[in-house]
């Protein structure tokens, strides 16, 4: 599903700090729940965004489902992201002026939104958002917001979901709920990469990576599913 080869990317997240990655190679097959751990500022988000096609590496390649992401043009890569990848962020990143349902459908073409309408409605139901479907993000709790963000990632039926500290702002119950849904997605054949500096994703992980100072310091371990 995802193959990264010798990825290197320097990244100054803040003046004076470097959160880059150095010669990172890893593989996440379909049906895997991979967890990327490491201390703050070690380059986890850089690796995730590089795999997500939003941060071009200085060297190395990223292949998702056999497509070399950075051999695509910017617009082709944008289309690829829209159709094959789902993102969940720590800060939810919902569009404040759209309702819950509109946020889930955000970025889809009208045709795509129409064809996915019924599956989106059942997703809203599954994630316990039925009575909040017309609410705006400003009126939602943190847990509800993250569920909306998760629904948005799942709605497109992506091949891979990239989650950057998805439970960082959630209470344990909501965090558990998010991981359960990601795990269900994994069991249906999708691949998941969760970036976290905690251990709350460990029970769901089928594979764990550890990053320190931009380097993978621990060999990927294959855990029982």
């Amino acid at each position: 599903m995802v193959t990264c080869s010798h990825l290197t990317r320097n990244y100054a997240a803040r003046p004076g700090s470097v959160a880059g990655i150095v010669d990172v190679s890893l593989e996440i097959p379909a049906g895997e729940f991979a967890v990327l751990q490491g201390p703050s500022g070690c380059g986890k988000s850089t690796l995730l965004l590089t795999i997500g096609g939003m941060l071009r590496p200085e060297s190395g390649t990223v292949s998702v489902g056999g497509t070399d992401l950075y051999s695509l043009s910017a617009s082709q890569r944008a289309e690829f992201r829209a159709s094959r990848l789902g993102f969940v962020f720590q800060l939810f990143h919902l569009v404040p002026y759209l309702t819950v349902r509109e946020n889930i459908l955000a970025g889809m073409s009208t045709t795509q939104a129409r064809s996915l309408a019924s599956s989106v409605d059942s997703l809203i139901h599954d994630l316990g958002l039925s009575d909040r479907r017309n609410a705006h993000p400003g009126t939602l709790s943190a847990g509800e917001r993250q569920r909306v963000a998760l629904a948005r990632a799942l709605a497109r039926k992506p091949a891979l979901i990239l989650a950057d500290e998805p439970t960082g702002n959630l209470d344990p119950a909501n965090a558990q709920l998010v991981f359960q849904h990601l795990d269900r997605f994994r069991r249906q054949g999708g691949a998941v990469l969760v970036v976290t500096h905690g251990n709350d994703a460990a029970p769901f992980a089928t594979r764990t990576f550890r990053l320190e100072s931009g380097r993978l310091v621990q060999n990927p371990s294959l855990l029982p599913a």
């Binding site: 910017a74 944008a78 992201r81 159709s83 990143h93 955000a106």
Partner: peptide, 15 residues
């Protein structure tokens, strides 16, 4: 800024 980043992540191009 955050919204723009999101649109990018969701596949919006420069145009």
């Amino acid at each position: 800024r955050a919204e723009l980043g999101l649109w990018r992540a969701l596949g919006h191009g420069s145009g």
